[in-house]
């Protein structure tokens, strides 16, 4: 394990980058995904189509391909950011499709009477959705939304392909330099497990506080 402790700084840096990629992308994904879920249940056909195309396209194209399209393709139309920012955008958009599907199934699980009652009181669609349905819907899907965060944490490793120095990149570089892949693998795996296990503990706490079971 010597090689892991010798490079503890680099590991720490990788861990911080992975964690900040995960948190920032999740914020993007959550806001965007909830919005797209709203589009998908809205009574306005063109908005519904946009929501459907967004989720279907992003769910069916591999994340690695999205990274390549954004990073190597979009520069051609004048869209280029630093690797970290690009990664947050790509990871956020990709995960937003899954957040949207999760939130939508949460919305479908809210009893129809809730929306009916809100409509009977004269609330408009955005009001029904924003004040009555979504708050209940989000609380039913706390656990799957949490699993999405964990999946996202692992997916940040694909930022490796665009040279963001996160854990997978640290592993790759050190393993190539030192040739001691096995202890390094153990170290990286441990780092990811620390991240995922602590987030699932945190998700458990949030779940106990806010989740409603149906």
């Amino acid at each position: 394990m010597g090689v892991v402790f010798d490079n503890f700084d680099l590991f720490g840096r990788g861990l911080r980058t992975t964690a900040s990629l995960a948190v920032l992308s999740y914020l993007v994904a959550f806001v965007l995904g909830t919005f797209v879920a709203g589009l998908r249940v809205s009574p306005i056909p063109p908005l519904r189509w946009v929501g459907t195309v967004w989720t279907e396209a992003l769910r069916n194209i591999p994340l690695t391909v999205l990274f390549f399209v954004f990073f190597f393709g979009f520069t051609k139309i004048g869209i280029s950011y630093f690797p970290f920012t690009s990664s947050v955008i790509v990871l956020g958009c990709y995960t937003s499709a899954f957040v949207a599907e999760t939130v939508r199934s949460g919305i479908n699980s809210v009893a129809a009477g809730q929306a009916e009652a809100a409509r009977a009181l004269g609330l408009t669609f955005p009001q029904v959705l924003g004040t009555i349905v979504l708050p209940q819907a989000l609380r039913t899907v706390v656990a799957p939304l949490g699993s999405l965060f964990i999946a996202l944490t692992k997916n940040t490793s694909i930022a490796y392909t665009v040279a963001v120095v996160e854990l997978a990149r640290v592993f790759n570089d050190l393993a190539n330099q030192t040739g001691e892949a096995i202890p390094l693998f153990a170290g990286v795996a441990a780092a990811y497990l620390i991240l995922t296990l602590s987030s699932s503990a945190a998700i458990g706490v949030i779940e106990r506080k806010v989740a409603i079971r149906r």
């Binding site: 694909i158 854990l167 393993a175 190539n176 892949a181 497990l193 995922t196």
Partner: peptide, 16 residues
Amino acid sequence: RGVPLVVLILFFYIGL
């Protein structure tokens, strides 16, 4: 399930 696939693939490629 906890280790990202990229890391597994790199491990087999570089390490083994």
